[in-house]
Design a protein around this nucleic acid. Structure first.
Lengths: 218, 218
DNA sequence: GTTAAATCATACTGTAGGGTCTAATAACAT
DNA sequence: ATGTTATTAGACCCTACAGTATGATTTAAC
């Protein structure tokens, strides 16, 4: 019932709005909140400052929209554990690699830096970002693990803990270094090897009884 | 040979310099780089802006000094694995708890947020901070682990990897949430329990042969 | 006690940037 | 056609703030 407000005159241009959002995201990610000016955003979007202010109340409001957009963009896709037919190892490997690629992507890094940097000023935003991104994916994995426990494929007391350890190991060294721009960025090969190792360790910890007897060194 | 430049007149006041550094650190940690003004720093230090500029070339220079100071302050203490006589478990537990307390302290959080936020602008600083803090402690643990491997107390292929997994598990859930100000902060009890669990897992992974046979669930 | 440097107090400059205003034009609704 | 709204172009206001200038005052070296 709220959709068809009777209008007269020109309608707001959705493409311009999108352009503004796009430019703002690009610039915020590139230079951070403080060092991105509204004028620069307007320029980049080929739009007037006025138009920017017509669509967004102020800089803060625009920023909130960007973070919300990023949260959506970085949320885990719906069919994450699709068929559920693959082996646990394969599922973990795929998830792990996707996750690692995500967080070490240029945009993933910039987004995290941005949110962390502004977290103390926009606590609700940070919370929302966390819950729709990291927290969501953590829960998904926990659910999957629980299902595999039921299926007798894993032995886990607390799936949520186990899931968090899996992600923790994945991030391991990388994460902080990535956040701090301490390159060089890992190569695809390194990432794959690292994910394999994490899966191996995970299975040694939580795999069926026999899994524990296999290779004892890492 | 560079120390005794013949001077005349008043000497720079070391206490004022210290006061400036103190105020700057406090305010930078509290409000971030951009939102801390030189005037505010001078005020807080009970000093004139002129004096601030007498001691530090500009805001950036002052900031660099602060980060260096933080890096020193957060560097691991020398006698970390003191006697080396305690059990591996106990050593890991102590280290883990100290580490967790450190990174979840108000100042530890603020420092990390600050460095992360400015990382893309002050890459060398971030690098320096990483190497004198996290990297150093990682190496210390790796060395300790290697020594315990030699002593037959542990079975580890790559001590550096193992060390990084230990810290990764410690941070686990906590770290990102802490960086994002997603409270509530963990209580002392929770931290202790968490460290215990990490040590247990670690020993299951890397402890002597028998360690693997114990409790199979977590 | 003279001198040179450090500090103070305060005013000042210059610039960047958030946000507003106005007047004109363009697009759409009825 | 008429009215309403979006957008443009560009000037404009105001505040915050980094950094400087000036002149007085204190402190320590000699």
């Amino acid at each position: 019932m709220t959709k068809k407000i009777p209008r007269q005159g020109r309608a707001p241009d959705a493409r311009k709005r999108a352009a503004i959002l796009g430019s703002a995201m690009k610039l915020f990610l590139q230079n951070g909140f403080a060092k991105t000016s509204m004028a620069a955003i307007a320029d980049e979007a080929d739009v007037t400052k006025q138009t920017v202010y017509a669509h967004f109340k102020d800089k803060d409001n625009l920023f909130q929209n960007i973070i919300a957009e990023l949260a959506k963009k970085h949320a885990p896709p719906p069919g994450l554990f699709g068929s559920g037919k693959a082996s646990v190892e394969a599922a973990l490997y795929d998830l792990g690699l996707a996750f690692l690629n995500m967080v070490s992507s240029k945009e993933g890094i910039a987004a995290t830096q941005l949110v962390v940097a502004e977290a103390y000023r926009h606590q609700r935003l940070a919370q929302h970002y966390y819950e729709s991104g990291p927290r969501r994916i953590l829960n998904l994995l926990a659910d999957y693990l629980a299902s595999q426990v039921k299926a007798g494929k894993l032995r886990i007391h607390s799936p949520l803990s186990a899931a968090s350890y899996f992600f923790a190991m994945l991030k391991g060294n990388y994460y902080l270094r990535v956040l701090l721009n301490t390159k060089p960025k890992p190569t695809a090969n390194e990432k794959e090897a690292h994910v394999r190792e994490c899966v191996t360790i995970f299975m040694r910890l939580y795999g069926g009884k026999d899994a524990l007897k296999t290779r004892n060194e890492l």
